[in-house]
């Protein structure tokens, strides 16, 4: 039971973070708050993927004595899985790109309707 909780508790906290971002996206009326919620959601998903790559007792995915021991076999279990890190580097950059486009659309909405609140915008559209 204790092993189960120690192995799983951080997944549960990531889900709590994701749900905080999701609530901000669907529940808050302010557009900037919605964008902040989207940022929190994306960061929580990236955190989940990075945590999949963890291994107990392994070190960073950088070969320390690579040039000295050229012929020596490399232990797979001695290094953290580098694949999630690579994919999440791409995801972080895409995250900032979506943030920029979302903020540009938010600024244009403010210039047209002079408010950032969703209900006032919907009232002005009708």
């Amino acid at each position: 039971m204790v092993d189960f909780i120690v192995g799983k508790y951080n997944y549960w906290i990531y889900i709590v973070l994701m749900m905080i971002g999701f609530y901000a996206m669907i529940g808050k009326k302010n557009l900037i708050k919605k964008i902040i919620g989207m940022n929190i959601f994306q960061t929580a998903i990236i955190l989940f993927y990075v945590s999949i790559g963890c291994k107990k007792g392994a070190t960073l995915p950088i070969l320390g004595h690579a040039h000295g021991h050229a012929g020596q076999a490399i232990q797979t279990s001695a290094y953290i899985n580098p694949l999630p890190h690579v994919l999440m580097l791409t995801a972080i950059v895409v995250m900032v790109a979506t943030l920029g486009v979302a903020l540009a659309i938010g600024i244009m909405i403010y210039l047209k309707y002079n408010t950032l609140e969703e209900d006032e915008i919907l009232k002005a559209v009708k």
Partner: peptide
């Protein structure tokens, strides 16, 4: 579990990259 060295994610593709 978190940090399990025998998880499926660290057995299939990544050993090729590491070695």
């Amino acid at each position: 579990g978190w940090g399990d060295p025998d998880s499926p994610a660290s057995l299939h593709v990544s050993p090729r990259y590491i070695t």
